[in-house]
Design a protein around this nucleic acid. Structure first.
Length: 256
DNA sequence: ATGGCTTCATAGTGAAGA
């Protein structure tokens, strides 16, 4: 069984103790991280190595930054989306235990009028067209990360409030739908899940305690992996810690 | 609900996140 998780940790510098604690408890084979916010020279490779993990990462100062931690060494590593000229470090890929893993941090978008929104839409189109080929090259493909998009009304605590807000606007949902349409499946919805299952809660207004969240972190599986998926869960426990990330980890178990 | 909280940045009338 391969246990793979994704977690936007909103600064690996601040959250390293949480990450070390979490991997010692859950012992994932693979952990995809987003928003490390660290340039590569400051990546805590030693601490993670002591915890038993290899790390492949692509970071920058202050913003963005992604990493794939794995118990086994990662093969055929790749940074970024080939053909997309993007200064922001948002994608790393690697093959672990015969599974191709893409760790993605999709742009936020800010709002419909922002230039960042067009960047988000262009970025998602580039990701989709690249992954179309990756699915052919790697039948066992996982695309895990922070998509900054809630797919359905049940993934939003108040769909009417969020209808025109970033993360749940029609063009964003269409873009996620089109990405899924190339042959991917949202692992979370393969299984019965509790109502009000979310992966992100605003730091403000006691949103977590009031269950005011969004499900915007996803693990997408290629069709060959769908029948091999044994579970998909969200672990809300780290959100209860002191100085938590505003995101919770999503975990899949694959029979590979 | 123009807010709210957190991070990293600089020392701002902060910027960006989600």
């Amino acid at each position: 069984m391969l246990k793979l998780a994704t977690w936007n940790i909103n600064s690996l510098n601040v959250r390293l103790p949480h990450v070390l604690d979490w991997i010692s408890r859950h012992e994932p084979d693979v952990l995809c991280l987003q928003e490390t916010k660290l340039e590569d020279a400051k990546f805590p490779g030693d601490a993670l190595r002591e915890a038993g993990y290899h790390a492949f990462f692509s970071g920058q100062r202050t913003y963005n930054g992604v990493a794939i931690l794995s118990r086994a060494p990662a093969k055929d590593t790749l940074k970024g989306i080939p053909g997309l000229d993007d200064a922001q470090q948002r994608v790393v890929s690697a093959t672990i235990a015969g599974v191709r893993v893409v760790c993605a941090y999709v742009p936020n978008g800010e709002n419909l009028e922002s230039p960042k929104f067009q960047y988000k839409m262009n970025w998602l189109a580039a990701l989709r067209e690249w992954l179309r080929g990756e699915l052919v090259r790697h039948p066992r493909l996982v695309v895990a990360g922070d998509y900054n998009i809630a797919p359905e009304a049940r993934d939003v605590h108040d769909p009417e409030l969020w209808a025109a807000k970033i993360h749940f606007t029609p063009p964003e949902r269409e873009a996620l739908h089109a990405l899924i349409g190339i042959g991917l499946t949202d692992a979370f919805r393969l299984f019965d899940q509790p109502e009000r299952s979310y992966t992100w809660w605003d730091y403000r207004m006691m949103a977590f305690r009031r269950k005011m969240g969004l499900r915007i972190d996803h693990i997408l599986l290629s069709s060959a992996l769908v029948p091999l998926c044994a579970s998909c869960t969200i672990d809300v426990e780290p959100r209860r810690l002191e100085r938590p990330s505003d995101h919770a980890p999503v975990i899949v178990e694959l029979r590979v």
